[in-house]
Design a protein around this nucleic acid. Sequence first.
RNA 1: GCGUUUGUAGCUCAACCGGAUAGAGCACCGGCCUUCUAAGCCGGGGGUUGCAGGUUCGAUUCCUGCCAAGCGCACCA
Length: 586
Amino acid sequence: MKQKIEALILQAIETLKAEGSLERDLATPIVVERTRDPLHGDFASNVAMALAKSAKTNPRALAEKILVAMPSDALLIKMEIAGPGFINFFMDTRAQYQVVSKILLEGEAFGRSQIGAGKKVQVEFVSANPTGPLHVGHGRGAAYGSAVADLLAAVGFQVEREYYVNDAGRQMDILATSVWLRYLETCGEAVIFPSNAYRGDYVRDIASALHEGSGTLYQRAIASVMEAIPADEPQGGDKDIHIDALIERAKLLLGAEQYEAVFQIGLNGILADIKQDLSEFGVDYQHWFSERQLMDDGSIQQALQRLEVAGFLYEQDGATWFASSRLGDEKDRVVVRDNGQSTYFASDIAYHMQKLSRGFDQIIDIWGADHHGYIPRVRAAVEALGGDVDKLKVLLVQFAVLYRGEERVPMSTRSGEFVTLRELRTEVGSDAARFFYMMRRSDQHMDFDLQLATSKTNENPVFYVQYAYARICSVFRQLVEKGFQQDVTQGMEHLALLTESHETGLLTMLSRYPEILERAALQHEPHQLIQYLRELANDFHAYYNAHQFIIEAADLRNARLNLICAVQHVLRNGLHLLKITSPETM
RNA sequence: GCGUUUGUAGCUCAACCGGAUAGAGCACCGGCCUUCUAAGCCGGGGGUUGCAGGUUCGAUUCCUGCCAAGCGCACCA
């Protein structure tokens, strides 16, 4: 409908241009919006105001001309000029009723579209280091990222979800060494566990699994392990020097092959846990992309060569630098350290070169907001590699702060006291967790109140929406119990009986769903859909309280049943799109 | 200090990307269950959109300055 009006206005303006009332080369951005106030009709446009200045006339006079030139349309019953020069459009209510039959006909497909058809988009999200279980901060990225991907898919994009596994680097060596030391404990060695190692219970679990599977294969005497190792921090030493020495010792005592085996067991144990965790949270990926692979297959070398050829690399202080400051970054960045090792950033350059080569029309990176300073250098890298910077979109997710009522829940990754995503899911459930995470704009800080999310008696927005759905299901159960049967055809014939304000309001609300979906997808803002579902639920609850559905008059009864059946479909479509369940009873 | 993001009702947040009288929930006050689930509904109070300028028909939205907060400023990942 919206597009139709836009087309009509465009025609009118073309007509005016043709007859010389308007400059021929006038830019015409047609904007038609739904009105907030029913008094302003169903749709409104501000074209006249937008054009008035460049057309050197006043808005109301121009609006007048446009109205005269507008082609007529059967469903358009009234147009008027209001306020400073808005053109308000009033639609025939028949147009509103059509949405009911459309929804019942299309079912699950209602709201979906093909505006993204033929376009490939990659969404990379979470990508947490595989050094421990996901915590609640990752949960928000997971809920948000998967929703962005699902929304894009719903409007026709070909979407690829990817997780970048940082399986290289020092943190992974610390993990491998942590696993090995816990394993030695299991073997009976008296280990003093390093302060800078991973202390979580999951490391113990992996270690005991290793012990069960391989016996004492990796055991070494603790004396040989600790011999001449610099002191740890609690003993007055430096925790980093201490752990690095232990890593080197582990590599030495185990040999390359056995060290690699322990390393892989640690990595795979945690990756398996992350995959399961995410899957249970409704998040699934097409690709798990390994950083190690970039190192092994020469991608990093290749990427650096490309930068070299393009003239963006130089040597200084024994290191190799990327001149990112020439492309908008605040300073240049090291890509190869003076010890010959490439940096994490070098991996990321190679990774993005990979992404560019895979033929996506759009590449979406979803990062924690603390990485925002990283954006300019990655954009610089993409540009230096000859890629199209506009294809890369980085979306930031702010941290969620957990509260239990008034009390702030402490979080710290290293100490092992952090709240994991899994703990959150068991405490509040996946539905509430996803809903709460997505309720707010992702780039805003949010307070996540566990008490509110778990409450089933208090006002809880998740239950509010689900309850609306369950109530409709209940109506249809009651209908049968009372000996009635829904007659869809009769209902469709009498939709015109739906004249109450609650009913016309719901009709408008329902017809907005496809627009909401489209906007939420293109703007990467799932919270708009959540917001919409809350409003729709609200309108339904109000309707439910104001009018009876199961009544004697068959024509009105069936018309109303068709309407709430449409509401039921849209609620379910929206919830399912966000991977939130729609229980039939509550 | 530099960069960046954010300041909206007592609290948590929206506001269709510049539109008409800035809206919800929680909390507070007052009503509604012999009738389809009261996890619900109806009504009420509550705002100088951090402050000061600017741009224009029109600003919570764009620009500048100031104030305040978060984050970032590694040859870590």
